[in-house]
Amino acid sequence: MRLGLILGEVGSGLRRNLSMVVSVVLVTFISLTFVGASILLQMQIGQMKGYWYDRAQVAVYMCTEIDTTGNCTLAEATEDQIAAVKQQLDSPTLAPYINEVEFETHEQAYENFKEQFADTTFEGIITPESLNESFRVNLVDPEQSDVLIESLSGLAGVESVEDQRAYLEPIFAILNAASYTAIGVAGLMLVAAVLLIATTIRLSAFSRRRELGIMRLVGASNRFIQTPFILEGVFASLIGSILAGGAIVAIVQFFVRGYLATTLPVNTSLLGMEEALLVVPILIVSGAALAAVSAGVAISRYLKV
């Protein structure tokens, strides 16, 4: 009985306020799409970081006879110097940070070089001896490369210690900026959505002020009076958030999986449906909660006794 009555009130409220309800739907749709997009971007950044940082190593380049930078003096790093670096890497102070160490000889470096630049001619210009020997260090925690750089840079025969992660930073900075922009837009749109929901509910309450007055007079409980209005707001924003969820799934399906995955290099790790399906419930729940709160605040002043 009561449930039917409340739902009937919700229905008539929505019908009476149709244009406002449509605008609430659209605004929540757009704002939550931005929210979802920024969450997806953050997830993408996290996933790419995970992928690339695992592969990014700290490289300890040893001197060759043509190097003058670092600790080099146009002399090839000696066996002793290489051993000293190796010893340092194995020492108790550094060992806990290190996952794996590989040594790359001149020949291996040359092979890698040839592979990477297979379509250019460098015969004669580049010789195995002009490429640095190096230690390739995989860290347990890639964030702690500074420890290695500090303790190894000063050693004799070391040309430089490089964190390959540095090459990736600009990419992540761009992605981060994009995601913060999306969050900013989403925030503004959410403010608009909240205000719009509050206004819609006030209008709805105003058009039903006779009923409200009588309800209060005959002793309808506050909960009974406010529930239809809150449901009205939640219903409108729920439609918006479901649309936003659909948009997020569509973005992942058609843009990320359909377009980016075919355009970018094969080994780029991209988001999949699992991530999209994780975002959708977040959007729906937050949309509904937001509407419930703002509608509740908007209606509360009609409940003052």
Binding site: E211, I214, L217, V218, G219, A220, N222, V305
Partner: peptide, 23 residues
Amino acid sequence: SSRKVPYFRRNLGVVFQDFRLLP
């Protein structure tokens, strides 16, 4: 308390000059 006011009002009947019916 204002939460109990509705329940209190259920014991009162009120009539006005302008009837206040729902049209």
